[in-house]
Design a binder for these strands. Structure first.
Lengths: 209, 209, 209, 209
DNA sequence: GATGAATGAGCTTTCATTCAT
DNA sequence: GATGAATGAAAGCTCATTCAT
């Protein structure tokens, strides 16, 4: 008889403490590798409290990831409507993107795990959030406008879209490997160069000559 | 088809059966989620046999991933030396890449998990394999040559490298999410378009005008 | 009846039930031969409870032996200060000694096992308890006093000490073999004669004539 | 269809290698703690060979202990008939005793374990060997003769017997503990003093004055 | 809400023993 | 005699989950 997410008031903040701790635990170890006991100890609450607030480890995982992804994408998408020209727009998108990553490094780990063990409900939620946002639509719209005006070459907007996304998030996903291959040590500096390189390559790539 | 890891002759093929079965198990469930019992049953061997050949689940995991990555990358890298012009070269690289993915879909899942829970030894091995291969060096060399000859714009070759890699592997990593967002159903068709789109965008992106 | 080892209150008595059961199990089978499952079943608790209170079989063993030895030696040593003359003193010591054995027959088995597989920590603890007690010091003091007064012959007090101890505990240790050799059937009667024989032999042995 | 002990010729010495290795293993770890694999590896033979020569770990244990005890006691008892006077006799007995211990330190460990987990068959064998030997009979005979001649006090010969035995073997059994209590470091020197102290105490203890 | 204790099912690992060659 | 591979049963231990208070 409990509703979707927050029927229990959580006046003591226990629920939130659990969520916060669980996020790192799941990011670090995945659903299977996470330990309820460890979450409880780190959060400073009794193990049984976790089952009082969330019925099971799995449900805790879903709650954590759902809330986390919603929060992250709310932040990302809230700020990407800015920018008039395509390059301003892309740069703004990349910046919020990177900012989100730097603020919550767990984000990438959880995303990687979700991609490896897709959870229908979570991925569908996430897909809906992204699809419903302005970002992909705006990019496609601006590309099509540019193509119509002869500024851009005729290209497949979906593929272009995909290229932007993979270029921008790709390094974050591959960082543990990429850093080892190319000896990247200062990730912040690298990301700063990277965002300009992406915009530069993309714009030159689509521009008509 | 067997790497030099194999010090024990394995004439009965038991070791290989275990490795093969374990690969899917680890891809599907990760190290923590994998069940030794399930591996044994599926491989048709006694559970204790797994500990006879590999002393622990963790060591089995490392053996599996090490051998698998070496095998995959040997295949990928072996064929990418072909192609004289940059676009031929890139296309060949992308094709073997995609081919590897389609042959061994576990590859991407294991890679995703390794990126989420990096294992020093495995990632270092992998980084060494890739760094030691011709691929990155060749791309960078051709770009520099092109820049020297004035054919290409002056760009950062490392970033260009990263862009190629993220564009090419990015979709494979993000597929479970991307497919849901854009309703991609025929992955083979999409990948076929994608490889040309990548080469096209990249070449136009670096070309001097 | 409980030692100061016990940091957890153990209000349910579960810890104590485990300790008590484990004592017999370890006495009967040794550390390697003891079965955690058997202890749990006999103690009427869940196997996991054993790991909740003690983290491992080995640690349970150490706890059991430590608490047991402390308890036994506290009893033995508490009562041996009585007796003014040396023979009264020795008789009192032997009696408490034998009493401890008859009350807790596991004592000897565990001691035998500890002597066969010495555990640094446990034996050091035990040595400290015994060394710190009045018993050896008192014996030596009385012997030296007697020697000074010319009542006793000049002998090595350490060796005399060792002779008392080995004579008194020796039979308890060797009983399974000794009983078979000399067909001793009534151990209680034998021990009763033995304690007087020891005092008698020892006193005549040290007495100056 | 295999007879008691050595139906298999053992021309390669494998059986003996196993026995020798197993002796240390059992001394060090006991029956339950011993590992067949470890014995095989240390003996440099295949595990299955152990089962070829001895049908089971338990049977191997019995064979090892039986042969070992027979050998040790043969040595001890063979030399104790020497000595005309009681003190010469006792000294000779103690010396061979100590010699056996120093030659085969495993002897004491195995004895301790047998006393803790008595094996009917082994202890009965051992008891028979000892009872059948000249040693206890000789001691008792000499004591009775001495008492008859008025040289010794009237004492219980069985108790006197037991006192000699416990004093002489007691320290060997208790050494791990005794050494810690009294800081005995040079065991050889201690034993040398000890054997004289025992004879001295005993003779003065039984002597009529 | 909160806790410590308890549980059952299942996990990884071990080990004595055997089999095919 | 000798070996490497195999097995079944069980061992120690873990962990999500629940209960009594």
């Amino acid at each position: 008889m409990r509703t979707e997410q927050t029927s229990i008031p959580d006046e003591t903040g226990t629920r939130q403490k659990i969520i916060d701790t669980a996020r790192s635990e799941f990011a670090e170890h995945g659903l299977a590798g996470a330990r309820v006991e460890r979450i409880a100890k780190t959060a400073g609450v009794n193990k049984a409290m976790i089952y009082y607030h969330f019925h099971s480890k799995e449900y805790l995982y879903e709650s954590v990831v759902k809330e986390f992804f919603q929060e992250i994408f709310r932040q990302i998408l809230a700020r990407t409507s800015e920018g008039k020209t395509l390059d301003q727009f892309l740069l703004a998108a990349l910046e919020t993107h990177i900012h989100a990553y730097q603020t919550s490094p767990e984000f990438v780990k959880i995303l990687l795990r979700e991609l490896a063990s897709p959870n229908e409900s979570l991925l569908n939620d996430l897909a809906t959030t992204i699809r419903g946002s302005q970002f992909p639509a705006t990019v496609v719209a601006r590309l099509q406008q540019g193509m119509a005006e002869g500024e851009y070459r005729k290209i497949d907007p979906q593929q272009a879209m995909m290229s932007i996304i993979t270029m921008s998030i790709g390094y974050l996903l591959l960082a543990p490997l990429a850093d080892r291959i190319w000896g990247i040590e200062d990730r912040t500096a690298f990301l700063d160069k990277r965002k300009h390189a992406i915009v530069d390559l993309f714009l030159h790539g689509v521009m008509a000559r």
